[in-house]
Design a protein around this nucleic acid. Structure first.
Lengths: 356, 356
DNA sequence: TTGAAAGCGCTAACAA
DNA sequence: TTGTTAGCGCTTTCAA
């Protein structure tokens, strides 16, 4: 509280039942105003602004000077009506996502917004739930968006079914089996496979894989990558190595216990939250990492950053994911050919949690 | 992985460089189509739909039957142009907020979206940064929104300055000194005061308050409430009791150390993240809660939920905050009088972390 | 290089 | 109760 003068006082917070009312003063200048003021036609002004069609350099100059002086901004809604565009793209994310998923969505959104801004688009948000996609439906039926980015893919996804029926262009972040859905995803399979294989190549034979919701496509991909990694190293795949639907710390504790009983040397967690829970349980049990048990994670986030020893993990870039999804969506809307599936790169960080 | 048939295979994820292209089939039916089909005028259709103006019950029926059969949905953009509305409200949140703030924004948004949905509005999102409010500016200049909800208030807030100049109706979630800004906030002062006073009344004399960014208005309010609580119990307020700008676990450790050295009996954390860090440091130091040190928090979230013993804390409802902000904004836009400042209730949870 | 006029899909006076 | 007409602010043919 050093900066005394910036400190607020209690009275700053207190107020009577003071009421306020909006006084509007919308002095919005239109393309017609510009045209009149300059003694030219609306068409010409429009052309000057859009840069389309031939126009005299002189007139162009005059228009630009005038609109920058008078602070003219085109009415995007009107433009949209004329061009049958909304200049919005829809961003669909779960309204009930867990705390650990939020940073992912936030970063995605940041990537998307960089791209939309370039195109002078805005992001309209729909929060959906597993059994309530009314918000998404509203945005689509009302034609408030030109396209949609779906932030999450489920195995049986109502959103995707609806979007396909509706005919609106959309892309999904994540992977889905549907042949005709444009999707952008981290290369989870490749990444999980490589990390698993790498760890196995260092001599680990007994793995335990702990994951959360098996209804999430991404978790299935992780399983597949894990199994591929094992096979590559000649380790027999045993379904008992895999524990799914780990919902909380208690469950994590149980699964940890089972792993230890089964002689697991290295636990791989499917995501950062699972890993966080597992780590807590490991400490609670008084075990040492990596001496008593090694730990790796198929996903990394700030949650794991603080941990010592540092955790071996896969790292992806959600912001890039969002940006790529945005670019592809715009191409798709524009009628261009786009790849059905785009996979993004990953990085493997080998840290002390798997070094004996 | 029980549900075998729902499991994906590796091949589901693999694809060649398959390309897809959008085939558009926009068969959007307009109000004119409806009118023609029914042999009535567009006006009549419009009236039937909006419910405004007199209209024969029979015609109304026929219109409704037809539009529900043909799946007619009005074009909101066109409606907006005619009525000078966008049917969007802007939601402004920091693009670089810490992981611990995200659940707050998510819950707020949920509350907002419930209200906007009622009014057939959508949420347009602008991610801003401390020194980059270009996204917000775009949305406002382009007139893409009818009003704005600002999710966070800073002491010197560029966003607020810009919004005031622009003349667009807006409300802020949080507190600001500006006389003429409509604001909705948790009653932080009252809550912090009451909790502090309550703890003091149970015999605690030596408090330590640990907080984060002092540039956040909310943290200043917490300080004020804390001091008021102390005064109420006849405890002398000493600036040395307050530690601000606690950025990470290391800083939390330092401040914890200072508190202990100064004979602090109870540490109050300004928010859940601080508290989380402090708790970690307390455990690291091998101290017992509440025997060695008592702990309370001015903010509660899922982060603290798992902790044992449970932490005495203040609880607010961010979703309600968002909903109230939404309602007030709509009233404000409609030209109604709205309270300059709305304070929301809080709950105090006394738990074992402050029971000796 | 410029302009007139029609149109995007809807609402809202004003008439009938 | 219904229809005619103009208009919201922009784009886009088609002529000039």
């Amino acid at each position: 509280m050093q900066v005394k003068e910036e400190r607020m006082n209690a009275k700053d917070f207190v107020s009577g039942k003071q009421m306020v009312k909006l006084q509007k003063e919308q002095n919005n200048i239109t393309i017609g105003d510009v045209a009149n003021a300059l003694g030219i036609s609306k068409t010409t002004v429009s052309r000057a602004i859009s840069g389309k069609g031939r126009i005299g350099e002189g007139t162009r100059q005059r228009v630009f000077e005038y609109i920058s002086e008078k602070q003219y901004y085109p009415n995007v809604m009107a433009k949209g009506l004329a061009k049958s565009k909304t200049y919005n793209i829809g961003w669909v994310m779960p309204g009930d996502s867990g705390i650990s998923e939020l940073p992912f969505f936030q970063r995605c959104m940041l990537g998307i917004s960089e791209i939309t801004a370039e195109e002078d688009y805005d992001i309209l948000i729909s929060m959906v739930f597993e059994h309530d996609i009314s918000q998404l439906k509203r945005a689509v039926k009302n034609r408030k968006v030109d396209g949609i980015i779906l932030g999450q893919a489920l195995m049986k996804d109502d959103r995707i079914r609806f979007l396909k029926e509706s005919g609106i262009p959309f892309v999904v972040i994540g992977s889905v089996p549907d042949e005709d859905v444009v999707q952008i995803d981290n290369d989870h399979i490749g990444a999980c496979k490589e990390l698993t294989s790498l760890l196995a190549s260092k001599g680990i034979r007994h793995f335990g894989l702990i994951g959360s919701d098996e209804n999430h496509v991404v978790n299935q991909a992780r399983c597949i990558g894990f199994e591929m990694g094992l096979k590559e190293q000649g380790i027999e795949v045993n379904p008992n190595m895999i524990y799914m639907n780990c919902r909380d710390e208690t469950a994590a504790g149980d699964m940890l216990g089972k792993c230890l009983k089964n002689g697991v040397e290295c636990i791989i967690c499917m995501d950062d939250e699972i890993c966080h829970n597992v780590l807590n349980e490991i400490h609670r049990a008084g075990l040492d990492i990596p001496k008593d048990i090694q730990v790796a994670s198929f996903y990394h986030s700030m949650v794991l950053e603080q941990h010592r020893p540092e955790i071996t993990s896969l790292r992806f870039d959600p912001k890039e994911l969002g940006a790529v999804a945005g670019r592809i969506l715009f191409d798709y809307i524009a009628g261009k050919e786009v790849p059905r599936k785009t996979q993004l790169a990953y990085e493997i960080f080998l840290k002390d949690s798997t070094r004996i």
